Simulated scan of single mutants.
Amino acid sequence: MKKVILASASQRRSELLNMLIGPVFEVVISSYDEKTIADLTPADLVMYHSREKAADVAGKMEEGIIISADTVVVYDGDVMGKPVDAADAAKMLKKMRGKKIQAISGITVMDVATGKQITEHEVTDIWMREMSDSFIRKYIDTGETEGKAGAFAIQGKGAILVERSEGDFYNVVGLPLFRLSKMLEKFGINVLDNNCY
């Protein structure tokens, strides 16, 4: 039996991990402060953040398998962060409408006791629909843009902003479940065996 710790305050990540392994994990929120590091690519940035979150939580634990993740939305090489307000959300959505964007997640799995650690990343391509200014305003009025990378939530009403996607859908939500399951296998956790607590 292995103790699993999710190093995230994200309700969405908790729901996805629960879907994968059941309600058998503990949530320990990382105090690591994410900042953009100019010389890192978006993929390297999210992997760096996921590693730092895992290391921060590992410092508070004596044992357990830590799972941490970081997700960004990227358009034309630029990271689209979380909007600071409605005007910022509108600016992001106008920039991305009718365009192809990417959701990139960095994910780290770490065994606190042994120090073994794996960090990988997942990319999902997303084609955004064309949107009028009034459509964008109405979407912002739903409140879904708040605290969301790229100013939309694909698992909510934001689903209608996405014409199509290619890759792991759950990666866009914030936790690439297929890749995570393969990573957990390397730590002796098979999600079908239910061998964690």
Rank of each mutant, 00 (worst) to 15 (best):
K99Y: 10
K99S: 12
K99I: 11
K100A: 09
K100Y: 08
K100E: 13
I101L: 10
I101S: 06
Q102A: 13
Q102H: 13
A103P: 02
I104K: 00
I104N: 00
S105Q: 06
S105I: 02
S105C: 12
S105M: 09
G106N: 12
G106E: 09
G106S: 10
I107N: 05
I107Y: 03
T108M: 02
T108W: 02
V109L: 11
V109W: 04
V109D: 08
M110S: 13
M110P: 04
M110T: 06
D111I: 09
D111N: 12
D111F: 08
D111Y: 04
D111P: 08
D111K: 04
V112Q: 11
V112E: 06
V112R: 09
V112H: 05
V112F: 04
V112G: 06
A113K: 14
T114M: 05
T114P: 04
T114W: 02
T114I: 05
T114D: 05
T114F: 03
G115Q: 02
G115R: 00
G115I: 03
G115F: 03
G115W: 02
K116H: 05
Q117D: 07
Q117A: 08
Q117G: 10
Q117S: 13
I118Y: 00
I118S: 00
T119P: 01
T119L: 01
T119M: 00
E120A: 08
E120T: 07
E120N: 07
E120V: 03
H121V: 01
E122W: 00
E122R: 03
V123E: 09
V123R: 09
V123P: 03
T124Q: 07
T124E: 06
T124A: 08
T124Y: 03
T124M: 08
D125S: 12
D125Y: 14
D125V: 08
D125T: 10
W127D: 11
W127N: 08
W127T: 14
M128E: 12
M128S: 14
M128W: 13
R129Q: 15
E130C: 12
E130W: 14
E130N: 15
E130P: 10
M131F: 15
S132A: 13
